[in-house]
Simulated scan of single mutants.
Amino acid sequence: MFNAFTLKLGVFLLLFIFCQSAVAQTVFEGQVLDQFYEKPVPSVTVALIKTKIVTLTNQQGYFNIEANEVAPIDTLVFSSIGYITKRLAVSDYTENVFVLLTPSNATLEEVIITNRKLKIERLRDFTNGDIGTTPGNPQSKYQLAYAYAKLFDSEHANLLLKQVDLGRYIAYAVPRIPVQTLFLLHIMDVDPKTGSPGKIIFTKQVHLKDKSYWITIDLSKDNIVIPTNRFFISLEWQQIPMNEMVNLRFTNRLYDVKKNGKQRLEDVSDYSISYQPIFTGYHRSKPAVSYTKTIGGNWQLNKFDSRYGGQELALSVTYKY
């Protein structure tokens, strides 16, 4: 009896301590972007000053700091070579915040000169405001079963692709949505007969590992040259266990039928499975031409009312010519 009582007491105390620690823990996470280019900045030093916790942003500019006790007057400091140091009071922190770093004058001038020399351009540009989660932001979710393709039309030909940027939708209120996910990125030509996505020129598997809203996919080492001025970028969903999301719901089921023919229904639980990732869309007065792949493997044109504009997936490409 004594041993059993002691064991139960010990388990209770451990659970109590664990719960207290969990309640007291504070999490700061978000993404650091270049204010000039609005792209993720890797290897930024992020410091919680008074708590004395330091971390670095990853390749997507994502950071995560967990602290058990945070002073109300503490400050997050973001610093990196070539950028002006930024301070953010913890009282001003919002969930999964975008932190914009301003390049120093010398760096900014150097970048501008370099861009003019290399002739770098970006098509179908979007901003952090388009994919953020501020109240009233008219976003939409792109979560398909098969694939989506977006047309890019440039003024130039013989394009050397540098990078692709994407907006990802993260639903923090639904804990069962996985953070890690895999999908395929395709570069495709234009079918000369139908104008729809044609042959695949290049494919890259993308593995997302954190909660970044802004996704940058580096293509600079892949040497992808587009000979024409029009091409598609396609996103293909992978129906694999890693990407599964279980959606629970209640539905009505026939329970009994009375003699007078009246049916009795009961509530039963049911579920369906959908797949990550979920991308972010935003409103544009003239959305890009885009297609969705059907269950039969055909490309179907996405239509919108030209009087009101429509939603467009936050997907841009940077190229050199």
Rank of each mutant, 00 (worst) to 15 (best):
Y172D: 11
N3C: 14
A147M: 14
F78Y: 13
Y308F: 15
R122Q: 12
T251L: 08
S274P: 10
I65H: 02
S43V: 04
Y148E: 11
T85A: 09
F304L: 02
F304G: 05
D267L: 11
P72G: 03
S220D: 10
A288V: 02
V246R: 10
G310S: 01
V317Q: 06
E29Q: 14
P287K: 05
G195N: 11
E38M: 06
Q276R: 11
L161Q: 05
G261H: 00
K117N: 15
D165K: 10
R124S: 12
R264P: 01
Q300Y: 01
D125R: 09
N243D: 06
V32H: 02
R176T: 13
L208V: 15
Y83S: 00
I49W: 01
V111R: 09
Y271F: 14
V41D: 04
E244S: 12
S285L: 07
F183H: 03
E236W: 08
W299G: 00
L160E: 10
N64G: 01
G261W: 01
Q25R: 15
Y319W: 02
L56Q: 13
A71F: 12
D256Q: 13
Q139Y: 11
Q139E: 09
L144F: 14
Q143S: 09
H207P: 04
L108I: 06
G198Q: 06
P135R: 05
P135S: 05
T45D: 06
I177G: 10
K221L: 13
P175T: 05
F250P: 05
I120T: 06
R168A: 13
E244T: 07
A145S: 15
V46P: 08
K119I: 03
K52T: 06
L9Y: 12
A145L: 15
E155F: 15
G167T: 00
G198K: 08
Y308N: 15
F2E: 15
K259I: 00
T75K: 01
E121D: 11
D305W: 01
T6F: 13
E155N: 15
Y319P: 00
I215N: 12
Y275T: 03
T45Y: 04
V317G: 00
R253E: 07
E95W: 02
L56G: 06
M1I: 12
F12S: 11
P40N: 08
V54I: 14
R176E: 13
F279C: 07
N247V: 13
K150C: 04
E69R: 15
Y275N: 05
Q60W: 00
L56P: 01
A24P: 01
A89N: 08
L108A: 10
R249G: 12
V97K: 09
H283G: 10
Y321K: 05
T114R: 13
K141A: 01
K204Q: 14
N223E: 13
K162M: 12
Y255Q: 06
Y37E: 11
R230K: 14
S234Q: 08
K209F: 14
V225A: 12
Q139F: 10
F250E: 13
K86S: 03
V164A: 12
L159E: 09
L123C: 07
E110I: 00
R122D: 08
K262I: 04
D270Q: 11
P72W: 05
T26I: 15
M1K: 12
I73Y: 04
V32M: 06
F18S: 14
K119S: 08
V111P: 02
F231E: 09
K52E: 07
I217W: 04
G195A: 06
T6C: 11
K211F: 02
L185Y: 05
Y83W: 00
Y255L: 04
N3W: 14
V317K: 02
